[in-house]
Measured scan of single mutants.
Amino acid sequence: TRVETATETAWISLVTALHLVLGLSAVLGLLLLRWQFPAHYRRLRHALW
């Protein structure tokens, strides 16, 4: 049971790290898009909202 718990903890930390990385890359990508294509971003936002 001790090994299982350790594996579970490792998986949880791995998944958390993955989610953090994905979230950060998504935010960075959005910022980059907004910085590179302001007109396109505004049009996209206008279409979405």
Rank of each mutant, 00 (worst) to 15 (best):
T1F: 12
T1N: 07
R2N: 10
R2D: 11
R2V: 11
V3Q: 02
V3P: 01
V3W: 01
V3C: 01
V3D: 00
V3I: 13
E4P: 06
E4W: 12
T5D: 05
T5P: 01
A6S: 14
T7C: 03
T7Q: 13
T7Y: 13
E8M: 06
E8I: 01
E8Y: 05
E8Q: 04
E8W: 05
T9M: 11
T9R: 12
T9S: 11
T9W: 10
A10G: 10
A10T: 09
A10D: 05
A10R: 11
W11Y: 13
W11F: 09
W11H: 06
W11E: 00
W11V: 06
W11I: 05
I12P: 03
I12N: 04
I12S: 05
I12K: 13
S13E: 03
S13I: 14
S13K: 05
S13F: 15
L14S: 01
V15D: 04
V15Y: 00
V15A: 09
V15W: 01
T16D: 00
T16A: 11
T16R: 05
T16I: 12
A17K: 00
A17D: 03
A17E: 01
A17Y: 04
A17N: 01
L18Y: 03
L18E: 01
L18R: 03
H19Q: 03
H19R: 02
H19N: 05
L20K: 05
V21W: 03
L22N: 00
L22W: 03
L22R: 01
L22P: 04
L22A: 10
L22E: 01
L22G: 07
G23Y: 06
G23F: 13
G23P: 02
L24E: 05
L24M: 13
L24W: 07
S25Y: 01
S25R: 06
A26P: 02
A26R: 05
A26M: 11
A26T: 11
V27M: 10
L28I: 02
L28C: 04
G29E: 02
G29T: 15
G29H: 04
G29S: 13
L30M: 12
L30T: 08
L30N: 04
L30G: 13
L30E: 01
L31Y: 12
L31S: 11
L31H: 07
L31Q: 08
L31K: 07
L31T: 13
L32G: 01
L33A: 12
L33H: 09
R34Q: 05
W35Q: 15
W35T: 15
W35V: 15
Q36L: 12
P38H: 10
P38G: 09
P38N: 10
P38T: 06
A39G: 14
A39C: 03
H40M: 14
H40F: 08
H40S: 09
Y41T: 13
Y41S: 08
R42E: 12
R42W: 07
R42Q: 15
R43G: 08
R43T: 12
R43H: 07
R43C: 07
R43E: 08
L44F: 13
R45H: 03
R45C: 07
R45A: 09
R45S: 07
R45N: 00
R45P: 04
H46T: 07
H46Y: 08
H46A: 05
H46D: 06
H46K: 05
A47N: 07
L48Y: 03
L48C: 12
L48N: 08
L48S: 09
L48Q: 00
W49A: 15
W49C: 10
W49T: 09
